[in-house]
Amino acid sequence: METQREGKFQRILDAAVEAISESGYHQCQVNKIARLAGVADGTIYLYFKSKEEVLIRVFQERMGDFIAYMRHELLECETTKARLRTIVRTHFSYMEQNRSLAIVSQLELRQSDPRIRSAINVIILDYFSLIEGVILQGIQSGEVPDTDLRVARQMIFGSLDEATTDWVMARSPRTLTSGVEPMLALFEGALRLR
């Protein structure tokens, strides 16, 4: 029974990503999410209190999975350069493979009210911590000169975030992953990676 409930929960989240990316959060109706998930409209409210909670849980669950995956990938890295490459490659490939989620995270969450932003901050702060941890490891190993962790993280996250937004909004299709090496070169230069 629990497996069936979890499966339905995941279907609703997947449907919400698709519906919100197609219609926009404010225009998206719960019945569209239910239809895409293959459930009755009222079933949504057995899992979520409101459409706002659906959006929050989409971000928490999907981006939480993304960060957990990135942490796992980073365990295999032995150098700061390899860790930075993993961050860029994982960020770009995940967004490219999950375009609807990229649209939701890059466009819809930024227009939301402060309650939604507050609820998703835990995940964003976890990502910030992950990036700062990579920079700190680089400083401790002597691969990166002493630098302000917050500023370095802002540069890395901001660049990844802006590149993803630019990709989502591009008028002509292109790959996001083609930017991995140029972005890595930018970070290596800015951090004066040794």
Rank of each mutant, 00 (worst) to 15 (best):
Q137S: 10
G7D: 05
E52T: 12
L107C: 13
S172Y: 05
L191H: 03
S172H: 08
R71F: 05
E188C: 13
L186M: 12
E162I: 02
P173D: 11
K51N: 05
L136R: 15
S93T: 14
R194T: 08
Q137W: 09
F157P: 01
Q60H: 09
F128P: 00
Y45S: 03
L160T: 04
G64W: 00
I123N: 07
Q97G: 11
Q111K: 15
M183S: 13
D113M: 02
E78T: 08
Y94E: 10
L109A: 05
R35C: 02
M169R: 15
Q29T: 12
M1I: 06
I135Q: 04
R174E: 04
R174P: 01
R171E: 12
Y127V: 06
A152V: 03
D14W: 02
Q137K: 12
D126L: 02
K49I: 03
M63H: 09
E73I: 14
L193E: 02
R99F: 14
L84C: 07
E162G: 10
P145N: 09
K32W: 00
Q27H: 15
L109H: 05
I87T: 02
G42P: 09
L109D: 03
L36D: 09
P145C: 02
E6P: 00
S21T: 09
V134Y: 07
A163V: 08
S21M: 08
H26P: 00
T164P: 04
L75C: 10
K8I: 03
V54T: 05
K81W: 11
Y94V: 12
R150F: 15
C77M: 12
T90M: 03
E18H: 13
A82N: 02
I20M: 11
S100D: 14
T177V: 12
E73N: 15
L46W: 05
R83Y: 05
A185R: 15
A68D: 12
S129N: 12
Q97T: 08
V39W: 06
D166K: 07
V168I: 03
H26A: 12
E162F: 04
I103F: 05
A40Q: 12
R150S: 11
E52H: 03
T3C: 00
G189H: 08
I156L: 14
M1R: 13
K81E: 15
T147P: 00
